[in-house]
Design a protein around this nucleic acid. Structure first.
Lengths: 255, 255
DNA sequence: TGTGCCAAGTTGGCCAGCCAACTTGGCTGC
DNA sequence: GCAGCCAAGTTGGCTGGCCAACTTGGCACA
């Protein structure tokens, strides 16, 4: 049985979901084809129907299959991004695409938090924050300027990282700082002088801005970041339905 | 019991979710407060723990609460958008914000589908499509240019609608055309001559572009649309976590 | 005093089963 | 031939139960 592969983290339904995703993207059921019934899948994988339903809920959230009472599930698309945990880490996302992520720390300062930062990070008045400015590259090409505000607990650790470290989230995870939930807001903004210099574009030229507040599993904010992307290097992709939704990030949208 | 209110569509877990959402946004559990245990909620509502878990999964997907093994769930925020079905209809979204949505049909043509359109709408070679160009307004102010491609089945109905009708999705629903699932891609694009004229901006000025393919519950595409928003009028907001995600659209981002 | 262990509490996960709502295709009867 | 009915198949929803993994706070002990 395909489930013996240690593809997913451990829970049965994740393994079933991973296996079904693999089967779908490899075209086993065809595009716009129909999946086997839940009961059949349950028997095939040797799990209960509830577990199969849990797995299918994941695929539905990713926009891979539909589900409607009375009919078999229908395959929506065979070529899709597999996971959206990517959105929580630039490094992880880049690697999942086969691109080489890079980063250069431009500045790191420690200063008192202003009102907006205290609000976003839920800090007491008088608290300090660590603010970083980083240029992010994909395979050597600058694509994004990242301005991140960290609360003291996290900032102290970030400040100790070497300036050329590619990923921040990975070493922070070693210290027990987890990035699990995030709120994103996407809009358009004009490049300021710093943006223009780092991204080698004209001042005032449009950039795609992603504002992000990330929290750990307990709901405690761990970062507040503004990322500014060069147009044409990245696009954000979302799937939503009346049931649930999923989101991912694409490079070089082909149109 | 609060469940007697016919707030949600019918299923128990939706009612429980609606009631909990109400309680959370009204601050009953406080911000960053802790929810009662699943078992306690099950007893309180007179349902099984499984049903409570289903309800809490909805709230978690909306980014209202965390969940972590070993501890009570934590309230993430008390003031959030409640539903993201909004994203499937400009009209519905505008009204949910108290804005008055408007629209003006600029053109409607019927022509053979090109390759990209056939791919997006899953049409046979030789099929025709209906293409509309609409200017969308919020309380009289132009904010968005919408270019939509409809398959014949849907386009025939759209062509019969009066040109000044505000909502397309609502009359289409009467004819059995349902908009339930959508894939969105968000990026930046420069205004062309039409955009500039309709939105009264300069040609080449940046616009926030949302490309959207919408399907009905069976997975059949019902529209393929490109919406171009004036910067500053709208921002897209997403919540995602390692478990699931939700998305919504905001007006006039305050920063 | 402080450290480490342990038990209670909580959520994650899985199962087996049941019924309801809905879709579909075939059959019956006109 | 056609319309309508019906039964089988399928997913949605809910129950009750069980165990595992994890967190937390208090207690025992050094």
């Amino acid at each position: 049985m395909a489930l013996d592969q240690d593809r997913a983290t451990g829970s049965l339904y994740r393994k079933v979901a991973a296996d079904l995703r693999e089967a779908i993207t490899s075209g086993s059921y065809g595009d716009a084809g129909r999946l086997p019934a839940e009961g059949a899948l349950a028997e095939q994988y040797g799990v209960s129907r509830g577990t199969v339903r849990q797995a299918l809920a994941v695929l539905r959230a990713d926009g891979l299959v539909t589900s409607r009472r009375g009919t078999r599930r229908v395959v929506l698309g065979t070529a899709r991004v597999q996971s959206f945990s990517e959105l929580l880490s630039f490094t992880h996302w880049a690697r999942s695409m086969g691109e080489e992520p890079g980063g250069r720390l431009e500045s790191l300062v420690r200063r008192p938090a202003d009102a907006a930062e205290r609000e976003q990070l839920r800090l007491e008045p008088g608290s300090e924050v660590y603010v970083t400015l980083r240029l992010r590259t994909l395979s050597g090409t600058p694509v994004m300027v990242e301005r991140t505000v960290y609360p003291p607990r996290v900032g102290e650790l970030v400040a100790q990282l070497p300036p050329d470290v590619v990923s921040h989230t990975e070493p922070l995870r070693e210290h027990g700082i987890l990035f699990t939930d995030a709120d994103h807001t996407i809009d358009v903004v004009a490049a300021n002088a710093d943006d223009a210099r780092l991204l080698t574009c004209r001042r005032g030229s449009p950039l795609l801005r992603e504002k992000r507040r990330t929290t750990d599993p307990t709901g405690t904010p761990v970062e507040w970041s503004q990322d500014r992307y060069l147009p044409g290097t990245v696009a954000f992709s979302i799937h939503n339905s009346l049931a649930s939704s999923a989101l991912s990030r694409h490079a070089r949208e082909s149109d």
